[in-house]
Design a protein around this nucleic acid. Sequence first.
RNA 1: GAUCUCGUAGCUCAGCUGGUAGAGCACAACACUUUUAAUGUUGGGGUCUUGGGUUCGAGUCCCAACGGGAUCACCA
Length: 527
Amino acid sequence: MYLLIPAFVFYICNPNNKMSQHLSEQEIIRRNKLEKLNALNINPYPAPLYPVSQYSSDIKNNFSEATKEHYANVCVAGRIMSLNDKGKVFFIKVQDSKGIIQLYVRKDDVCSGEDKTLFDELIKHLIDLGDFIGVTGFVFITRTGEISIHAKSFTLLAKSLKPLPVVKRDDEGNVYDEVTDPEFRYRQRYVDLIIKPDVKNVFLKRTQMVNAMRTFLNERGALEVDTPVLQPIPGGAAARPFVTHHNALDLPLYLRIANELYLKRLIVGGFDWVYEFSRDFRNEGMDRMHNPEFTILEWYTAYKDYFWMMETTEQLFEKITLTLHDTTEIKAGENNISFKTPFKRISIYDAIKEYTGFDVSEMDETKLLDVCKQLNIEADNTMGKGKLIDVLFSEKAEANFIQPTFIIDYPIEMSPLTKKHRSKPGLVERFELMINGKELANAYSELNDPLDQRERFEEQSRLMERGDDEAMFIDEDFLRALEYGMPPTSGIGIGIDRLCMLMTNQVSIQDVLLFPQMRPENTTQEA
RNA sequence: GAUCUCGUAGCUCAGCUGGUAGAGCACAACACUUUUAAUGUUGGGGUCUUGGGUUCGAGUCCCAACGGGAUCACCA
């Protein structure tokens, strides 16, 4: 491929070539500039390292009269974001990974000798918005008060062949010609990141958030592990999996929908606190809350129960919020949310009672169905008791929990991997953490009774036979592991993408995924 | 998967009841040795997503396809 580049450049530069019809005027001009650079013996893609000494942000944050000695000879590099030609002087805004800084490029300073080619040709005619350049020079403050670099040398580091969308900002912070087309932004995320600092910041925050979670867990002695993404039996959740095929084994394999059953095997194996940031895959619909692949942090801790898990979870969320925002109060849309511990706890029955007026705790299926009808909730008699309670909660109560709230003690039918409640028959020891009206985490005291677990799997198996395509498969190896004995354990799953949406105030999951799933572009070109 | 809606220059958008496409920024040329969405003058740039249809004539009306968004269904 690399060897083909010169021929390729010739091919696309040839005006008689069909492919040039697909190039815009601006793209052709930039390709022509490559030839001119060649003629001047300037390599548009030089190989040597460039000895960058400073980031733009370091200079802008720390430069002053007192520190100016330190900035008498700096070397910065980045992408040209604006060019202001003043004749024998150029003002160039350069963006590096930490921000933007202005260069002051004066003809007589970058071309001290007789040869003025560098300025008259390269700088005046052959560089473009989007090119990477490097300069050395000293830092000073311009007449208009902007910290800038007075360039002494100027190097082209990489030529850009495609025009960048130009977004301008004025002093009041107004943005002009902002690229808003989501299709453009998601498909060409690299461009989105170049031209929108806010977008870049969301992803920096995402990494900070994940780091904070990892630190929190590591400090407490948890062990990060990797478990299979390709699974012969997709377990640990109720969802439709992606299917693939392994040729050598001639076996169908599934992309994981959860890693729960593998992490619990590790608890059996003697690790007492394991976690994994798990990329999971579910073959279901897509919308602003769902992407086919997404990330969940799951962790399992031996000798703990779901009460301990609630305390640990609220500590974690409080710490994340403090790390990202230096406060426990954040804004999510119109709502102010406080992550100050402790979080409220309410049983799912009390939650339903609070928002519907019905006490459903003692009701059977018929009565529950009747309540649904009274509340105008779609329900039918194929739905079991657990499903009906779930529907009642999600239709009438869920959206009301804006402040972090643990909804606890779920019906057993909805929770085939959860330990039976220590004192409340028909319930399991499970909680979901609701924030801003959405579920952010799901946790339980793990079911470690192998015989009970087998019965729950068998019930799932019956559901599958009845046509429930999300019912769980019986995982015999997992049952075998439980039979060796698993200590009492509590586990949790936390939706990382949704937590990130909350922490960065984004309404669409696509805005917290660098490359959200998209239908392929129609890139067919004439051969 | 269903319904609604959008697709015009590199970007943001105009384009009326159908009459051979327009602006700002960007681009090119010239001027200007501290500019601030720099400015001034001049100029170039479009298979109006694609394919059919109606019509003397389609960016505009109709049908279909492709892609995006919203709502719904499934779900986290």
